[in-house]
Amino acid sequence: MSPPTSPARQQDRHHARHRARHHVRPRVRRAVATLAAAVAVLGAPAVQPAHAAAPQVPVFHDASGLTQVAGGSLVRRDTDFTLTVTSAEVAGPHRIRVFLPSGYAADPERRWPVTYFLHGGPGTVDDAAAVPALRSDDMITVVPDGGRKGWYADWVMQNTALGAANWETFHLQQVVPFIDANLRTVPERTHRAVAGLSMGGSGALHYAQARPDLFGHVAALSGGLDFGMAEVRAAVLATELNLPGVWCAVSSAAPGTCADYGPYVDSDAIFGSPYPVFGADRVWKAYDPAAPGNLSRLADTGITLYTGDNDLIEGYTARASHTVASRLDQLGIESRLVDYGDGASLAPTCNGGHTYACWAPAFADWVPRVTAAFEAASRRPGS
């Protein structure tokens, strides 16, 4: 036990604490001020002034069969926001993420070209955040929900556990005119592109074929483009049945996790029977993005294909991409195929696999090219 402290000693300690407070507090205040300034430079929201204005985004009005969900908007900044809408064509609420050019608000007379980005399965609209090139100051980027396994098609079966699933109608007849009605777009095919990866790659090529009046440019990255390949049909079936295994790789799911494609649906739900017996697979053939008859509809479209070949999935997408490029050549239709193999020729981050580490630099290559094409279209007489 410590001996008692004398009154004189206690008084000395009191004065010492008093002096310490007067010496330390200014140093603390200066340190806090310095830290706050440093954090402000880094952009941390915690030190933003209390009176800072909330981000302002364009006001959207319901149109083309889309109804906005009250309270369903998420505004990250005035150039990055998400709307939630409902439609009779697809059951449940669905999100649409929008990236605006940084100069959109400052130049209210200017109209902008648009690229529609179609995510893979079982991705979401937020997958676009993994592709920095889509946040372009030269165009608007729109990312509509494509479902965990929508395959960008109007399903044969509409009475599955997922309910109404007319994804193609939702996107082409509702989302596109909804965006044109609410944003300052250039509503012409020469200023509109569609691009996608994996499931969205086949969707992008199909949409460009189904509506050449809407899209003048298309990019398909690592797409299951050839529906004549048994492996591509197997990928669709695996998503319908939500099967585990190798097709866990066909997604942007976190490493080490298996993709979840949602509730089980019948194997014939999307495209009908996949078996080429007595014409049972007629819907597959009609949709097939690699079919020469469908490819012929791209005669006046800018076409770019990207693929690696360094894992099992990319081995299939490489075969499909080369088949499409070869058939386009036979039809006399110009296209650009970038087969980056093991990824060494594309970017240090890319290993040639089915991953955003390759898709992000592929988009970084494509976006300046498509925006240059938009600009060239603007300079043509009559534009």
Results as ranks from 00 to 15, higher is better:
residue 1 M to K: 13
residue 5 T to Q: 05
residue 7 P to Y: 07
residue 11 Q to N: 07
residue 14 H to N: 14
residue 14 H to F: 15
residue 21 R to V: 10
residue 21 R to K: 11
residue 27 R to P: 00
residue 34 T to P: 00
residue 37 A to K: 06
residue 38 A to L: 14
residue 39 V to A: 14
residue 39 V to E: 07
residue 48 Q to T: 02
residue 49 P to I: 05
residue 49 P to E: 00
residue 51 H to V: 11
residue 53 A to K: 12
residue 58 P to S: 10
residue 58 P to W: 08
residue 60 F to H: 09
residue 62 D to T: 04
residue 62 D to G: 05
residue 68 Q to S: 07
residue 75 V to W: 00
residue 81 F to G: 05
residue 83 L to Y: 01
residue 84 T to N: 08
residue 89 E to D: 15
residue 89 E to A: 14
residue 89 E to V: 03
residue 98 V to D: 00
residue 103 G to Q: 13
residue 103 G to A: 14
residue 106 A to N: 11
residue 106 A to W: 04
residue 107 D to K: 13
residue 111 R to G: 06
residue 118 L to F: 10
residue 121 G to I: 05
residue 124 T to K: 06
residue 125 V to H: 01
residue 126 D to Q: 13
residue 128 A to M: 03
residue 132 P to H: 08
residue 134 L to I: 05
residue 139 M to E: 14
residue 140 I to P: 00
residue 143 V to R: 01
residue 144 P to Q: 07
residue 146 G to F: 00
residue 150 G to T: 11
residue 160 T to V: 07
residue 160 T to E: 07
residue 161 A to P: 01
residue 164 A to V: 07
residue 165 A to I: 08
residue 166 N to H: 15
residue 172 L to I: 08
residue 174 Q to Y: 03
residue 176 V to M: 10
residue 177 P to Y: 06
residue 182 N to K: 07
residue 184 R to V: 02
residue 185 T to C: 05
residue 186 V to P: 00
residue 187 P to L: 09
residue 190 T to S: 14
residue 190 T to A: 15
residue 191 H to M: 11
residue 191 H to A: 14
residue 192 R to I: 04
residue 193 A to F: 03
residue 195 A to Q: 05
residue 198 S to Q: 06
residue 201 G to L: 15
residue 203 G to L: 04
residue 210 A to P: 00
residue 210 A to C: 08
residue 223 G to L: 12
residue 228 G to F: 09
residue 229 M to I: 03
residue 230 A to I: 13
residue 233 R to S: 11
residue 234 A to W: 05
residue 234 A to F: 10
residue 235 A to K: 01
residue 240 E to T: 12
residue 241 L to A: 10
residue 245 G to L: 02
residue 249 A to H: 08
residue 250 V to T: 09
residue 250 V to W: 04
residue 251 S to V: 05
residue 254 A to H: 00
residue 254 A to V: 04
residue 255 P to A: 13
residue 255 P to I: 07
residue 259 A to C: 11
residue 259 A to I: 06
residue 260 D to L: 09
residue 263 P to N: 10
residue 266 D to C: 01
residue 266 D to R: 04
residue 268 D to G: 08
residue 270 I to N: 06
residue 275 Y to E: 07
residue 281 D to R: 09
residue 285 K to C: 07
residue 290 A to G: 07
residue 290 A to M: 02
residue 291 A to P: 03
residue 294 N to W: 02
residue 296 S to T: 02
residue 301 T to Q: 08
residue 303 I to A: 03
residue 303 I to F: 04
residue 304 T to K: 05
residue 306 Y to F: 15
residue 308 G to R: 01
residue 312 L to E: 12
residue 314 E to C: 07
residue 327 R to G: 04
residue 327 R to K: 15
residue 330 Q to M: 10
residue 331 L to A: 14
residue 332 G to L: 11
residue 333 I to Y: 08
residue 334 E to S: 15
residue 336 R to Q: 15
residue 339 D to P: 03
residue 345 S to A: 14
residue 345 S to K: 02
residue 348 P to D: 07
residue 350 C to R: 03
residue 350 C to N: 02
residue 356 Y to M: 08
residue 359 W to L: 12
residue 363 F to G: 06
residue 363 F to S: 01
residue 364 A to Q: 13
residue 367 V to F: 03
residue 370 V to D: 03
residue 373 A to H: 13
residue 374 F to V: 06
residue 375 E to D: 14
residue 378 S to H: 11
residue 378 S to Y: 06
residue 379 R to G: 04
residue 380 R to L: 15
